[in-house]
Design a binder for these strands. Sequence first.
DNA 1: TTTGATCTACGAATTATTTCGTATATACTT
DNA 2: AAGTATATACGAAATAATTCGTAGATCAAA
Lengths: 130, 130
Amino acid sequence: MNKHSKPQPTESELGILKVLWQDGPSSVRHINDLLNKERETGYTTTLKLMQIMLEKKLVTRNEEKRTHIYAANVSQESAQKGIIAKILNTAFSGSAKNLVLQALGNHDASLEELNEVKALITKLENEKKS
Amino acid sequence: MNKHSKPQPTESELGILKVLWQDGPSSVRHINDLLNKERETGYTTTLKLMQIMLEKKLVTRNEEKRTHIYAANVSQESAQKGIIAKILNTAFSGSAKNLVLQALGNHDASLEELNEVKALITKLENEKKS
DNA sequence: TTTGATCTACGAATTATTTCGTATATACTT
DNA sequence: AAGTATATACGAAATAATTCGTAGATCAAA
């Protein structure tokens, strides 16, 4: 859609995107309230960050009302893809397997989740065999 | 072992650790040479970074010879664990499953790798059932 | 219509990270 | 021994990311 690809979101920007992904289009106030549950952050700090994100096209905003409403302009999936690509090379020597083993090994996924993952793998295997 | 836990390595620091993990204890020269295959970096830049890492205890060094030899002082596993923990919360809403799906879905792992992952999952499932 | 709350804009301070230049010491070569 | 290459140390510049204060607009309530 855009000729220029968006930069990878920074750490703080991801925190904001996370809320937008979860709750959908939101005001600065809403986001700042949520962020403050995790960690004290000034209102104008959050505002400034979101204005920067607007410049970077990481979000869009609706200015009809006085209180602007921001929306994520990158999907969670694409952001995830970028992050994984980056850490694969730096921390995991390019091995997706190792990444997966760490993720599953250390953070207990539910039985149900494990099954879903297994199902995906079977699917991938079949695709490869054909 | 240490009373104070080591800070998370920064992006550049990870690049250095990556070499140390791969090649074992190395001189600054060696690391800088490898880094330069990816991206131009001045020698003293790498040196300085490694001195900082020494302060942070991310590496140790042997000073017997004039050319100091640095060694990683964090395992690749523990660094991986830290990174995954961080991105799980920010980008993946805490779902290890989603992280795994992305990792496997986008970067083609080999059949062999897929099998290994599957084996691990089966093992985890059995642990849970007991 | 004055007061108070809330909003945006935006410059600038602060902090974190990365990069580099220079001084100085040590080793190697001729 | 002199000259050249290669080390470390370290301050400080450059860059990136985060945080904050202040000014001015808008709205809502007394």
